[in-house]
Design a protein around this nucleic acid. Structure first.
Lengths: 259, 259
DNA sequence: TAAAGACATGACGGGTGCGTCATGTTCTAT
DNA sequence: ATAGAACATGACGCACCCGTCATGTCTTTA
């Protein structure tokens, strides 16, 4: 019925509840993809999503083709359209997935910490570790800014919301400097992303093999910068527990592996 | 002779000095495009590059078509290939152009300033002003990360190099906190880019019309954060000239538009 | 064990856009 | 004034890939 219509022609008229899926007894997931009923179908959908992550990561959204995704997943092209309506749809689902994983990783790394500066330090390290393990995420999310702006915005907002909450609480408690919470959250995200871009995504410029971690001196330096940016002017380091001499952070970046 | 070969098939075999351009007596510019000889040709090439900036900014690299660029430039499609070999080539030239403009704007805004913290403050404001006037630049450069990674890397490196030099000098002079210069440069760029993304590129989320400037309280807050991050622990504000009470920046962000 | 539904296949229709080329027009130098 | 070079035109060949559909296989249920 509807013309085949190449993606670019756009204007997806698909009604929210179309007869097709009702006839097949399928349900819709959060981002609109079709949910399989049996375990077999679930496994196939998973294979396709995993392949999509790899292909989008390597080739980017536009150069990635559905046929390449299905080829790598080991299924026929038509199978793709059992689970996703369009190429764009699987891309959005991928962004949501990666965002969820990242937020979980950071939450796990900072759980139980009470001091806000400690939270920042562990959060940053967790972020760098995550990106080092999922180098594609950087470019995928970056590209989403064009392909699916709502998805990209949601991705950043989901991160910044939690961030902002924590910062605001610490500011009101007088633990850190009072600043614009949202601006501070975005500033901190920007720091993390740009350092990841420079030292994790771009490989080889620095004699670094892909697979390497973030250099320790870089991490130490940025943590020191952040610490002094956030901390109340008088006390730059942790004010409560084990009180060593000031600027603990700056010392730890001297005696590590990286030159 | 050579197959028409849609862009995607890739593998550009063009030899560095091909017979074609020699026959037409053309020269090659920095990024490989063909340089016109007469003023008429120069004007046409400029029209095409300007149109390309608009079209790439609105549609992105892949959805932008050469025919749309030439349509908007008011020339025939074939004319495009008199000045550029491929769509990718004009994209790279555009990135170089925008980078040059941005660096000039920042250099102009910080010329003559001696205090490093003053340089940062004026530099950031200049950056925000520039992005507000060229909203497309953000997404264009972002997309370059996929389309022309070398161009994107050069863009950031050119900015960071100057940045780094200034930071290192200030660190060695004992004007600011001693940190990893390159890491600090990238951290500062990250802050600028993410704030620009949130408050300048994304329009409407905040009741903001596109065309607006960066909110004053956001600027004030981020400058305060940076100032304390960079400044030596004892003196967070300008130590030399008009000495008001400490944390001048933090007060100005209280009585502005944002809630 | 038979019917019904879920899952899977892969060829193909139709639309798109890049880059070419044969031809035409304007400018410059002599 | 005229040759030759620079500049400009726009239709078209070719490769590409999205999303569909008619058909077939597996799994569950009663």
């Amino acid at each position: 019925m509807a013309a085949p219509k190449q993606e670019k022609l756009g204007a997806r008229p698909k009604s929210p509840a179309d007869g097709q899926s009702a006839a097949r007894g399928e349900a819709r997931s959060e981002s609109g993809s079709l949910t399989p009923v049996t375990a077999r179908g679930e496994a196939t959908k998973r294979k396709i999503l995993d392949a999509a992550e790899a292909v989008f990561g390597e080739l980017g959204y536009y150069e990635a083709s559905v046929s390449e995704i299905t080829r790598r997943a080991g299924v026929a092209q038509g199978t793709f359209y059992i689970y996703y309506h369009t190429k764009r749809e699987i891309f959005v689902e991928l962004i949501e997935d990666l965002g969820r994983q990242l937020r979980m990783a950071i939450r796990a790394a900072t759980a139980g910490l009470t001091d806000r500066l400690e939270v920042e330090r562990h959060g940053f390290v967790a972020f760098f570790t995550f990106v080092a393990q999922h180098r594609q995420i950087y470019r995928i999310v970056q590209e989403a800014e064009r392909v699916a702006p709502e998805a990209a915005e949601a991705y950043y907002q989901n991160i910044s919301r939690g961030y902002e909450r924590g910062l605001r609480a610490a500011m009101e408690a007088g633990t850190i400097r009072p600043l614009h919470p949202e601006a501070t959250a975005y500033a901190l995200m920007g720091i993390g992303h740009f350092l990841a871009l420079r030292w994790l995504v771009r490989s080889g410029d620095d004699g670094m093999a892909p697979g390497d971690q973030m250099p320790d001196d870089v991490v130490a330096s940025v943590l020191e910068f952040i610490t002094h940016g956030l901390a109340l002017s008088s006390d730059a380091d942790e004010p409560h527990s084990d009180s060593q001499s000031p600027s603990t952070a700056s010392r730890s970046h001297r005696d590590r592996t990286h030159g």
